[in-house]
Write a protein that binds this DNA or RNA. Structure first.
Lengths: 223, 223
DNA sequence: TGAAAAATACCCTTATCGCGGTATGGGAAA
DNA sequence: TTTCCCATACCGCGATAAGGGTATTTTTCA
């Protein structure tokens, strides 16, 4: 009879930390760093997610995994998902040199609890592990800034472009893939009227094709 | 001739902090707390956004504003937007008792740089102001946790439709509104090849037009 | 009530698209 | 090794779209 897997402290009461990092030198440095922090023990380190996943299936689960993104084989983002499937309670903290918005976004969406850059000060890394253990979201300051950027991009824009009600209606029908004739039939107006409206819409949106208009609608949350 | 408004240190070199908070007792406590922190000066405090906005138009702009959410008149979220219009470089840190996901989401989308709960330790609040000044995103641990929750809800479940890499590439170019010839030029392939690819893409996506395909891409997060 | 804005309709020309084919070379899988 | 998939390329036809007009009717609102 199997119990639901649970993370737990290792025998001596220390927090159980794992490390997934392909650079051997950095891996050893990090392992040393974690082990010299009071109350933490880096019980395992791996050079790939694949290796870590094998161990996850046979071992006591770690409380925190420090995870690189650029790894041979499975990358860190994919790794998060796999790890979370086996051990949903493990806090995963990304430790990488990559700081582009997409990576940050993907990692956090996939279930990472934190995101640190490798140039972080050693004590900052240890603090961050503790913050993760406390249920927080430790981030390098640059990453925190990117998170704010991501949020501000999520803000629904009210860019209107001065479209009239009717024009928005046409645009709406366009987005579901209708042709001009189909739109005309649906709205009981002439094909030529639809053409005129579309001309005006394109001019207001500064596009010159149906596809451009539809893209703009979705990208800028028009309608 | 007016210059673009800039935030700046006040005369003695301290950081200029403002406070918007309707509870008079808490406001005085916070003001005292900030003023006793080295390098910080709470030059003004207000009990409503409206009052603060008036002052913003005639004064040197603050570097940080500590902002309550539940305020008489204009609430804090609306306040953020108004303040950012006048002083986009001011860091706004929310300081409130409300910790529901919607408030957090709205505040961060509106441009808040941080989000603290009022039960935060005084030194944590001062640290957070410094973190905001450094370009970070200070948050109470409960809020950080909620931010992670919000991200995990944003996770797009991508549908696949078995598109090949090349087909996804074509689809990508389609979504920015390019015509077949433009795509061909961009990818250094023949117009006819583009046509063939599009045919296959339509068939896989079960659509029969460019607009239908683009709509599907955005609605179902393909790519 | 009168001007402005919006919605309607039509014409013409050229460009692009959708769809039915066919075909070939390369690489991966079986 | 042989089959299958992918990416490549081409043809033709009819439909649809884009861009340039002009013009009338209806609505809105100052």
């Amino acid at each position: 009879m199997m119990n639901t897997p649970k993370t737990k402290n290792i025998s001596n009461g220390s927090h159980n930390i794992w490390l997934i990092e392909d650079n051997a030198h950095f891996r050893r440095t990090m392992q040393w760093l974690v082990n010299r922090a009071p109350g933490m023990k880096c019980t395992h380190s791996f050079e790939s997610c694949e290796d870590a996943l094998i161990k996850l299936k046979e071992e006591e689960l770690p409380e925190v995994i420090l995870l690189d993104i650029n790894l041979p084989g499975m990358n860190g983002i994919q790794g998060i998902e796999k790890i979370k499937l086996i051990s949903p309670e493990t806090y995963i903290v990304i430790l990488t040199v990559y700081d582009d918005n997409d990576k940050v976004f993907d990692a956090l969406c996939a279930g990472a609890s934190g995101y640190l850059l490798k140039d972080s000060a050693p004590e900052k890394i240890i603090d961050s592990i503790e913050e993760a253990l406390a249920g927080g979201a430790p981030m390098s300051i640059q990453i925190a800034h990117k998170v704010l950027e991501i949020f501000s991009q999520l803000k629904p824009k009210k860019s209107d472009y001065g479209l009239t009600t009717r024009e928005k209606e046409l645009l709406q029908l366009m987005t579901i893939g209708l042709s001009r004739q189909q739109i005309a039939d649906k709205l009981f107006i002439s094909f030529h009227t639809v053409t005129t409206h579309l001309k005006n819409i394109y001019s207001k949106l500064h596009v010159n094709s149906k596809s451009g208009a539809i893209s703009k609608v979705y990208k800028e949350n028009i309608l």
